[in-house]
Design a protein around this nucleic acid. Structure first.
Lengths: 252, 252
DNA sequence: TTGCCCGAGGATGTATACAATAATACACGA
DNA sequence: TCGTGTATTATTGTATACATCCTCGGGCAA
């Protein structure tokens, strides 16, 4: 009984289990399996709205479109299915579900509840190596703040939160939050487009990282919770302003 | 509680008029695609520990074992991969990851942070139909409390929380929590094995359902948070007692 | 013995063939 | 005209063939 658990832990250690990279990124340098690149492309195409909601994905069509056979397509679709981006209809294939505005709003709320855990656990378990990477990302963000490059900052924002997630060393947490970061990247781009927001956002990252580095779990959790709340408010502000613009356009 | 309705609900349940959205179970009456049944079997086998951690899954072996070709096996594996139950090694197949004690503990903490949202949103959005189902599950639980059938109560516990999750109408939340319910079913079986716990647990469900039915989001969130905390404490109690037993066995 | 090369075997990656199922169109009859 | 049954076709479900890659062990030389 106890021996089983012991060897379990040992194996886990030897396995060095945490270097799972973002799905689909080269699983090994140089070579990548087709289903992964298809998966990433399909997912991006769905998230960017290149497939409209309700559109059905036909395997043969996709196969010829991507210049591969049905097999990798099918496997990519199976993965999209688990992620909930497509809906399966028996013997009729899959239709695009995508994510709705409601989904994005939910994700922001969910992250408000979970990022605290990320920060707390990361503060307790972060490695020097991970801290180094986090600092690098932060410095890059500051660089791009000076250049006012919102897009780059958004990408690095994802990276920052992903690194923190890895640092938390929790597979369950990574499972729960992992793809949410990708799902709302578009939304964060908008949230960060509110004038002055990039500056604040990066500053918040800086203070979060300081708390994590100091091992102050509670402070890190408090700061990241505030960070999430600010991000959400900014998104709301952006959305309402967008609506105002849309309305005035309609009038003219 | 009226006995007539109880037996009615019971019959309905046993009849199987209860279409579970739980992955892989008959997507349509009568017919099921192979990859789904393979997926469910493999997942259960992993969660139940029939595959040991680190063991590699060989497609051809599994294919002959289940009497199907490689294709459905591969697709099932792709899904396990996304769920994080197996780890992919390029050109070498997948090895079983399973879930560790640490993962289970994390899941309980994560649920403490998220089930509040489930209850809150469910209270706001639940439909009469869903309420009916929830009541049925609750009545069945009370039935099995009388019979002291911990296993059935555990299964129904999963069902109760899953129904609540569906009632929350949030795809994102469902994605984050969906398979966690399955992952910790074994653990909840243990948590509920603590003497007297099944009684309290079902009573807590009852009060949660009352708050949800009354549309009292805050109360529902408060109650379910307490429910989760109790469940976690019971699991811890069970584990420590188990360890005590193991130790005394070792001595003999 | 140690280290390296290399080839066989096995496993996965991809493509394609065949079977089963659902959607569609069309002809036929009321 | 409308509805219905049927044939056709498109698409998915499953199986299998072929290509590619990795591992592992034998043989050989230093």
């Amino acid at each position: 009984m106890c021996c089983g658990r012991l060897s379990l832990g040992l194996e886990a250690m030897l396995e060095g289990g945490f270097e799972l990279p973002r799905r689909g990124e080269a699983r090994r340098a140089g070579r990548e399996v087709l289903r992964d690149s298809i998966f990433v492309q399909l997912r991006d195409d769905i998230l960017r709205g290149r497939f409209s909601r309700g559109e059905s994905l036909v395997e043969l069509k996709l196969a010829s479109q991507y210049g591969v056979s049905r097999t990798p397509i099918r496997e990519a679709i199976r993965q999209l299915e688990i992620e909930g981006l497509v809906r399966y209809l028996p013997n009729r294939g899959v239709v695009v579900e995508g994510i709705t505005t409601q989904d994005v709003e939910d994700i922001f709320v969910i992250r408000e509840h979970l990022e605290g855990l990320v920060a707390r656990w990361a503060a307790a378990r972060v490695t020097p190596e991970e801290l180094k990477k986090l600092h690098e990302v932060l410095e890059l963000q500051e660089f791009y703040v000076a250049k006012d490059d919102v897009h780059q900052i958004t990408v690095l924002d994802t990276e920052f939160h992903r690194l923190l997630l890895e640092a938390s060393k929790s597979k369950s947490l990574r499972y729960a939050l992992g793809s949410m970061l990708d799902y709302v990247e578009q939304a964060r781009l908008r949230s960060l487009s509110v004038p002055g927001r990039i500056h604040d956002s990066v500053r918040e990252h800086k203070s979060i990282l300081e708390a994590v580095e100091a091992g102050d779990s509670e402070e890190a959790a408090r700061l990241i919770a505030k960070h999430m709340k600010n991000a959400r408010n900014n998104l709301l502000r952006f959305v309402t302003e967008q609506e105002k613009k849309d309305n005035s356009h309609e009038d003219s």
